[in-house]
């Protein structure tokens, strides 16, 4: 196992170096590029920690959506760069910040070194009840059966963030369309790419979503891939975001959490507890929730990257 440990040590050093550089570099754009690479390194770490579900989420979120979001922001804020740089805090602040950060790191490191042994785990409990959920992947079982309340609240948090983003629109654009910076050339290489990739990407996204019941994968990962494909088509100038006042858009956004809540509260009648599933119906109900949540998540994640509405729809 020495080779494996050597890989781990190399990976840990690389990730620290990348994080350090991302923080230290002067140019914000360069820092964002560093952060994208950092996301990729994190994916590798999750694979090394034997958590493919988390690795999939990080691969889709960290490299794809967060990268696009930050790069878009950095590009628009580029002109402010020089002005803000003069605000760099003085030596005293920096020293105090360094001392504070070092203290936090040291305290956490002590905690890590003194973690209880043997480690407490819920894995046996999760495995014991896995059969009754009809789901093969324990992480999916936690997300949608054992701790489904968390997942519902998470979907609502994503929606709340989206409403927050929308509420930042100028009054005159309220109900309008969000917009990405697009290449105007609809015959260029990017448009070609955006015509070829999404059909295959949609298959991969649905596949990742579908296998989530029994293998690593699931709706968050699948939804992120689908959202990225939609953004790619829009970014290439082949399509436009719908106005956020569209009824179908709003219905789809709310449908996921609504179906989740209805099924959750129906549990009081059918199974005697909130978010309990009647025996034998767990798998179809979980599937129903996942299918309802899927469009909600795809739309919400893509629209979060798109930002606040910036123009009214053409008449």
């Amino acid at each position: 196992m020495t080779l494996a440990l050597a890989v781990d040590i190399g990976l840990a050093m690389l990730i620290l170096a990348m994080a350090g550089w991302t923080i230290a570099v002067r140019d914000t754009f360069a820092s964002v590029i560093g952060f994208v690479t950092y996301g990729l390194l994190l994916t590798l770490v999750w694979v090394r920690l034997a958590m493919p579900d988390v690795a999939l989420t990080e691969a889709a979120m960290g490299g794809g959506l967060t990268g696009a979001l930050l790069i878009g922001g950095a590009a628009r804020l580029r002109r402010t760069e020089a002005a803000v740089r003069t605000e760099r805090p003085g030596m005293l602040t920096r020293t105090l910040a360094a001392v504070l950060s070092a203290t936090v790191t040291a305290a956490l490191a002590i905690c890590v070194l003194n973690l209880p042994d043997p480690a407490p785990t819920l894995a046996p409990d999760a495995a014991a009840k896995l059969g009754s959920t009809g789901v093969g992947n324990p992480v999916t079982a936690v997300l949608l059966a054992y701790r489904s309340m968390d997942t519902l609240l998470e979907a609502i948090v994503v929606l709340l963030a989206l409403f927050g983003v929308w509420s930042l629109a100028h009054d005159r654009f309220w109900g309008g369309c969000p917009q990405l910076r697009t290449h105007a050339d609809s015959e260029g290489i990017l448009a070609y790419f955006a015509r070829i990739l999404p059909p295959i990407g949609i298959i991969v996204g649905v596949y990742i979503f579908w296998i989530g019941a029994d293998f690593p994968g699931g709706k968050f990962q699948g939804a992120t891939i689908l959202a990225a494909m939609w953004l790619l088509v829009i970014g290439a100038g082949l399509a436009y975001f719908p106005p956020i006042s569209q009824a179908w858009l709003r219905i789809l956004l709310v449908a996921g959490p609504l179906v989740f809540m209805v099924i959750g509260f129906a549990g009081i009648v059918t199974a005697g507890a909130v978010f309990a599933y009647p025996i034998g119906f767990a798998k179809p109900l979980i599937l129903a929730i996942e299918i309802a949540l899927m469009p909600t998540l795809v739309l919400a994640l893509a629209l979060l990257v798109a930002g606040a509405p910036q123009r009214m729809p053409p008449q």
């Binding site: 290489i189 990017l190 070609y192 790419f193 070829i196 990739l197 295959i200 991969v204």
Partner: peptide, 17 residues
């Protein structure tokens, strides 16, 4: 094989851009 094809497609596009 799909991974390689994706990488080819992405490489060609990104290279040109």
């Amino acid at each position: 094989i799909a991974i390689w094809l994706f990488a080819l497609l992405a490489g060609a596009t990104v290279g040109q851009l």
